[in-house]
Each structure stands twice: as structure tokens, then as C-alpha cells.
Design a protein around this nucleic acid. Structure first.
Lengths: 328, 328
DNA sequence: ACCTTATGTGTAACCGGTTACTCATTTGAG
DNA sequence: CTCAAATGAGTAACCGGTTACACATAAGGT
């Protein structure tokens, strides 16, 4: 391995000078700089980030914790984070929490042991002690917390829009998938939807779900049509659930959207490729990740940030699983 | 930050002794051990991995490079890798290469700068100099290389099975999506399919694709039905492409599988939830990731590994986008 | 011409661990 | 009882960078 000493020797200067050239700090004579740069080039030297990190007590690494990248919504968040971090020269250490507190605790610990400069997390446990104790910046993503900055979508508004749309388009018996009770944005969506359904006096049934996992979605889709066989509208807690519901509806020989309208949440990339393509409430997942990264970088570089909670707008994406809006 | 010195002072011993307790090396008196453990407990000390990594010249980090986790196939690989690594206490540094050589080179560099002990990569450029030069273990995943160990699925066999199935089930005019030309497993699938189609004297058209990206898939699906409007069977290069083709077929009013049969490749989690659910050639993605991690751990721990190339079996998953097999 | 300030570079301490080496004490074989 | 081997623990060098400090020389103000 080529070290800074090798470069120093090769260029005939001290390690301090090489370090100054590398970091563009202090005074370095133009001629010296060139010699050092030549030596770096010739030896193909790249500084050891670990040594740097040890002295500085901070690395160029960011910890990213997601529930499960197997759910297509999260990779989009991740890409947003990664791409923004990349622009500023940060790398990601990555972990799936599987919604387990233990795993999460463990990941956070090793993030810290590796001197990460910040942690971006879609945790299910934003209030936990191990977050409170952290002395590095934390940004919650797709989650809400009173202690820490967060980036999330306007869930309540999303829920409202979904309900409005499905009611306007004629559903009168609506099943609502509730989504995990302990995840704020999911509950906001749910509340928003219920609000509007009640205001409009539309009959609705609630199907509770505990996680966003796929097999649970399949299960709940079956349960839905057993519990509410005459449902003519479904508001799903996310697109994965909506897809499961759509599948089950078609399997039961129902026509979508004629017999049942279905609205999802997220707008994952595949939604538009289903048949019928899924109408959904779009969360700007990539942008949310990107913004979270941006917020993190601000927190790292300055200590103070004015805007600590960023709520992103949601949007109704009209596709084929809802009917045409009747003329006013 | 609590350091080993603090622990040493608190326990009334030297740092060397604390280190011995931590690493279970050398001789430590039972009583001393207990005192040290008590001190560690009381101070809530966790060793700094960075310092450790600097001295040892190796960390507990593994670099993982994937083309794009936004494609649902890759998160499954990633989860397999992560879960196995987790078991042995390794963490992942993660990057998406976006099939760009430049990005890839850059990621590999920072992996090295961070003292990763190994790199697992689904690269598009397995032969590149920057891989050859690496002095740490490299395992290619879902890729094939003559220089390095690799874990991949039996693409040729997969292609054969796909073609056999679609022919047996009655397609006589088959469109084949070729998949990126520079990716071995994709080409193997393609070759396998073509072989069988030719052997059976079934007419086939080839649609070339350059990447696995989603928007390209949509595009190619349209192109397919323009070029081969009378196709009664489609062998897609992966499930994403198959989903796009399925969508396009239904959009054009074709009945699947009555008018057109479609076979995908990968078996991503959503395939079964389409309507009709997608028949596909299953690659055991999670297991492949898991195995790759296992292989990597062997390479790290011993220097020598007997089985350096692991080919995983593929399997036809019969679902609704293919017709029933006619009675013999 | 003289003193202050700016420029340029090297020496060595430091970051937080690990381990080679040293030394003291115990243990046990003959 | 003697001496080699085993046990137990501390000191300090080391990993590869960064930077405080020291020092020398050049530049600039009066």
C-alpha cells in the first residue's frame, strides 16, 4: 500500500507538506505543490480514509437505515439519498432493520463505531433512547419525530385526496387498509382518508395491517374481500398492498375499476405497468431521499439549519384502477 | 467518547489488558477479566472500529456494488448478502453503479480507501483493470468472470427451459428480448432460448435491448409488438421487461395467455401479483446473495476455497401468463 | 535599515486501538 | 529442590494520516 510517507520520500518533502497539498491547507510553494502532485500521480496514491477518520473523529460515511429494501418504495428513497451524497463525496453504510428494534440498535451501534458523520433512518422507533443519545446529526426519512429533523410526505393530505377521488368517482362502500399503527405517516394517511369518508357520509370498513411486508399484503387482500365482499372501492395503505388487492379482485372475477376502484399510495415504478395500471397517491420518494441527504449535509457542514422538518407534497396519479370522473 | 484508556483507568489495568479481554487473546486472569468487563459495562464502552481497522489494515466492512437497486431483482441479492454478512458481523458499504464504468471505478476506490475486506459486485465490467489490481477478495454476483470467483444462475438452462415451455404450450411465433449484450448471464439465457427455438424449428424474432432499466423495457415492449404484431409468445430478458410486455399486450387488447404467452426471468416478488400472474424462470436471488456472502467470508477467513464458481439452479414457475400444457 | 508580517516547510504529538517485547510470578516435571 | 514452561500484565511502538508548533526566509511598512 502506498502511504503518505512514500509520497513524501518520492517528492523529497515531509509528510506535512504532502498533507497540505492534499487538503489545500496552509502555505505550499507552487513548485513544491507540483512536485508532490507528480509524486502522487506516479505512485498512484490515494489517502487512507481510515487514518484520516481516526484523527478527525469523523469519516465520510453516512449510515442509512431502512426497514426493507425488498419493498420497492425504499430503494427509491435510497437512490435519492445516495445520489445526493455522492455529489458531496459521502458514502453509505447500509442496513435493513426489518422493523426489529434489536437489529436497528445493532446497526446504529456499528454506524457509530465506524465514525459515520450522520445517520438517515426510516426507523419505526424514532423516540428510542439510542437515537436520543446520538451526538451526530440524525435525519428521519419518511418518518416523523419531535426530537429530530425529518423529511416526509403529507400523509393526511394524501389520505384526503385518495378518499375524495374515490368518492367523487362513485364508490359508496369503501374498504380502507389501515397500515402499521406505529408509523406516523401511515396513520396520517389513514386519518385523512377516514375524515373525508365520514364527512361525505360514505360507508367504510377498516382492515388493520401490522406491517408493510408483501406476504402480509396478500393475506390482507384476501381478508378484505371476505370481510367486505361488496366493497366498491379500496384505499390501500401503499402500492404493494394495492397490488395485492388488485390481484385478488381480478382473481375473484371482479372488474377493476367498474366493480371496484382501487387507490394505492407511493407510486412505485411498477404501478403504471400493472393492468389496469394503478391509480395512486404519489409520494416523491426519490426527491424525499435527495432532500433528506441535503438536509443532512447542511447539518454536517453548518451546525444550524433553519428548516428542520420538510413536508413534501403528494399528488393523485390517475390511471386505470379508478373510473373516469363524472361530469359536474 | 469513551476510549480504551478510560476503561483501563476505570478498571485499574493497562490498555493492553483491556484489549486482551476484548479480543480474547493472550492470558488474562479471571478476576481481571471480570473487572474489565464491569468497567466496559459501566462506561458503556464500544471499541472504535476505525482505530482497529487502521492498525489491522482491515475493517469489518464489505463493499457491495450493484447496478441499480431500483430494479426489484437486486434488492433480493442485496438482502441475501446482508443477512449472511450480518451473521458474521460484517457491514456493507453500498453503491449503485448505474452501469457506468466511471461510477464503478470511483466506488471501488472509496471501498479500498475505507479498508473493506472484500468486494461483492454485480459489475458490468468484470475484466477491468481496477478489479484485476485489487488485492482483497472479490466475488462477482450474477456475473461471470474467469479471474475471480462468482455466483450466478444457470442462464443457458434458464433460456432453454423458457423456450421449451413456451413451445410445448403452443407458441409458434416467438419474440425474444435479448438483454444487454455485454452481460454474460443475460446472453446465456438468450443463447439457451435461441438454441431450443431453432432445434424445434420455431420461428423467432430478436429484439435487442441495451440495459435492464425500466423505461427502456417499456420502450422495447412497444417496439416488440410493432415489429412482430403477430407474436404468440414472448421470452423476456427479465421480469421487468416481461411486465412491460404484459402491460403492452393487454393495452393492445391481446389476451394473455390465449393470444400471447409471456415468460419472464428472475421471479421478482411482484411477479405473482400481476394479472395474469407472470410465468417466469426463477433465479434464487436471495440465495445467490447469501451464497456470495458465504463464499466471500470463506475467502476472507481462509485464503483458499475449493469451489470458486457457484452456479445456481433455475426453475420454471408456472403461473398465468402461459397456457396449460397440452396432454401428451 | 529594522522590525513586523507573510510565506514555506519540517518535527513530532496525536487519534484509539493492537501487539511485540519485557518482566515478574506461578506451576509443575524430574 | 531446581529450573523450564506457563501465566499474567505493563510499556511502548505502530497503523497512516492531520496539525500544533517551531523555525527560517522573504516581503513590506516606516
Amino acid at each position: 500500500m502506498v502511504t503518505i510517507k512514500d509520497v513524501a520520500k518520492h517528492a523529497g518533502v515531509s509528510v506535512a507538506t504532502v498533507s497540505r497539498v492534499l487538503n489545500e491547507t496552509g502555505y505550499v510553494h507552487e513548485d513544491t505543490r507540483r512536485m508532490v502532485e507528480k509524486a502522487i500521480e506516479e505512485l498512484n496514491y490515494t489517502p487512507n480514509e481510515v487514518a484520516r477518520s481516526l484523527y478527525k473523529r469523523k469519516s465520510r460515511l453516512i449510515g442509512l437505515l431502512l426497514p426493507d429494501i425488498t419493498n420497492p418504495y425504499f430503494p427509491q428513497l435510497a437512490r435519492g439519498v445516495e445520489d445526493r451524497m455522492q455529489e458531496s463525496g459521502f458514502r453509505l453504510i447500509f442496513g435493513n432493520s426489518d422493523e426489529s428494534e434489536q437489529k436497528e440498535r445493532h446497526y446504529i451501534q456499528t454506524f457509530v463505531q465506524n465514525n459515520v458523520v450522520g445517520i438517515i433512518s426510516s426507523t419505526n422507533f424514532p423516540g428510542m433512547d439510542f437515537y436520543r443519545r446520538l451526538k451526530i446529526p440524525v435525519v428521519f426519512l419518511d418518518r416523523i419525530s419531535s426530537d429530530r429533523p425529518a423529511v416526509y410526505a403529507d400523509g393526511r393530505e394524501g389520505g384526503r385526496i385518495a378518499a375524495q377521488q374515490i368518492v367523487e368517482r362513485g364508490s359508496r362502500r369503501v374498504a380502507v387498509l389501515q397500515g402499521p399503527a406505529h408509523i406516523r405517516p401511515a396513520q396520517d394517511r389513514f386519518q385523512g382518508a377516514i375524515e373525508v369518508l365520514q364527512d361525505n357520509g360514505v360507508s367504510h370498513e377498516v382492515i388493520r395491517t401490522d406491517s408493510f411486508a408483501l406476504h402480509e399484503a396478500e393475506q390482507k387482500a384476501k381478508e378484505l374481500f371476505e370481510t367486505v365482499p361488496d366493497a366498491d372501492g379500496v384505499i390501500a395503505s401503499n402500492d404493494m398492498a394495492a397490488i395485492a388487492v388488485l390481484h385478488e379482485a381480478l382473481r375473484l372475477g371482479k372488474k377493476v375499476p367498474e366493480d371496484v376502484q382501487i387507490i394505492g399510495f407511493d407510486d412505485i415504478p411498477l404501478s403504471g405497468l400493472l393492468f389496469p395500471p394503478l391509480s395512486t397517491i404519489r409520494q416523491p420518494a426519490y426527491d424525499m431521499g435527495y432532500k433528506a441527504a441535503e438536509l443532512m449535509i447542511q447539518l454536517i457542514e453548518e451546525q444550524t439549519v433553519e428548516l428542520r422538518n420538510i413536508q413534501m407534497p403528494v399528488e393523485f396519479i390517475e390511471r386505470g384502477s379508478t373510473r373516469a370522473k363524472p361530469e359536474q
